[in-house]
Amino acid sequence: MYKIIKKEKLDDAIYSMWIEAPEVASSVQPGQFIILMIKEKGERIPLTVADFDREKGLIHIVFQIVGKTSEELFTLKEGDKLFSFIGPLGKKTEIENYGKVITVGGGTGIACIYPITRALKEAGNEVISIIGARNKELIIMEEEIRKASSELIVTTDDGSYGRKGFVTQVLKELLDKDKFIKKVWTIGPAIMMKVTCETTKPYQVETIVSLNSIMVDGTGMCGSCRVTIGGETKFVCTDGPEFNGQLVDWTEFMNRLSRYKDSEKKSWDLYHEHTHPCSCGRGTN
């Protein structure tokens, strides 16, 4: 179980894997997430499901190398197995026919917004997708998103591909132009989701974000992922991961994302010190 069936490089730091997990694949819905452990001594990390294949029993995950665990995950090869893989967790996206909607993805969030975009279109919505990255090389899953949406707009910060600028500039133009946008979904780095919500607020368009808090169990037991939504404490793992972004206390959310930054750095430094290219055997733990 939990065998890596396929591994792909999407850009320099973002990788994609299809994992064999038939129980998860049989019940997962767009918007839900999984928690995985690479090895017994590993940590439990949550990842939003990027796609699934119920027939083959596979779950698609997309991750960016940001620390020790994600780098270690990247070193695994097709055929290797994960120690633990649980899910689906969290609530599914509320998919219905709203009319005209926009989905906004940035970074690995592009992968996470993909199944939501597809499900919205399948439900009869007209879906405009906006995906953005720093430059052309960092744009991932463009063709999949294009197929899943009614219209796709790509932005790059440096103008090396698509429109020059940020996703929020395009979003603002669309909202100015079209008064019939019913709802917006955005997944990406916290700061991008925050700015997206600030952009939509004056237009009073409900904007759903998917929060990537630090978790342990992911089933409502520990409360590590708590976040303030409209003045009330909620658990991202069981009440979310999707929330009305305009109600999120972003300062607190971003503070809590940095809870372990010292430990994360220590882990990373030690890992790199231990994976030097000689055969002394260090780095294997």
Binding site: K41, D217, M221, N285
Partner: peptide, 20 residues
Amino acid sequence: LTRANLMKAYLFPKYDTPIK
């Protein structure tokens, strides 16, 4: 306690789960 016991954060960094 879950970090310390189940995830063995008391053995960090040998185990990957941190505790502050």
